[in-house]
């Protein structure tokens, strides 16, 4: 069941990524919603689920892109595993620490993705720092806000019920 939820979340992120960049939000291309979901899954479910989520999501993005199949997959696999390990070794429950994890995960992903392309002599990335920094900030913000909303929603109904006076 958990696997289905993770798969559905990744599929939703993938579809949203294509729809939002194509239709609605200018500059949404700076965000990587799929990476955000991979990091979220890794933080909440651990390194193995993070690794599997990263592999599936990265390969799907590669398959829909114009590059080499597997490079994005490898980058997201490593990021999913690494974030999962960080989530099990450290307490990452405060918004600030999550912000740092999302930002660092984005930077790691960009370094792996670009490093592999440059290392294989397939592409060059002249001055990518501004784009990576923008994406790290965007992903971190959206990731932390999404995290807070997901944690906040289940408790909302209970809090409302608790506030309601008892009927006699």
């Amino acid at each position: 069941m958990r696997g289905v939820v993770v798969a559905a979340a990744l599929a939703l992120a993938l579809v949203l990524q294509t729809l939002l960049t194509g239709l609605v939000i200018r500059g949404a291309a700076a965000l990587d919603l799929v990476l955000i979901v991979v990091v979220y899954v890794a933080l909440t479910r651990g390194p193995v689920t993070g690794l599997v989520a990263g592999t599936v999501a990265g390969l799907a993005q590669d398959a829909l892109g114009s590059g080499v199949l597997g490079i994005g997959g490898l980058a997201k696999t490593i990021v999913g595993f690494a974030v999962g390990v960080v989530g099990t070794q450290f307490i990452v429950s405060a918004p600030l620490s999550r912000l740092v994890v999302f930002a660092m995960a984005t930077v790691l992903h960009a370094a792996l993705f670009m490093g592999l392309y440059v290392g294989l002599g397939l592409r060059s990335f002249p001055s990518p720092f501004e784009a990576v920094a923008t994406q790290a900030v965007g992903n971190a913000f959206v990731g932390v806000v999404g995290f807070q909303i997901i944690e906040w929603l289940p408790g909302l109904a209970e809090r409302r019920r608790a506030r309601r006076p008892l009927k006699r």
Binding site: T18, L64, G65, S66, G67
Partner: peptide, 10 residues
């Protein structure tokens, strides 16, 4: 639809 990843322009 737009690109599936911000790394590609498709």
């Amino acid at each position: 639809a737009g690109p599936a990843s911000p790394d590609f322009r498709t």
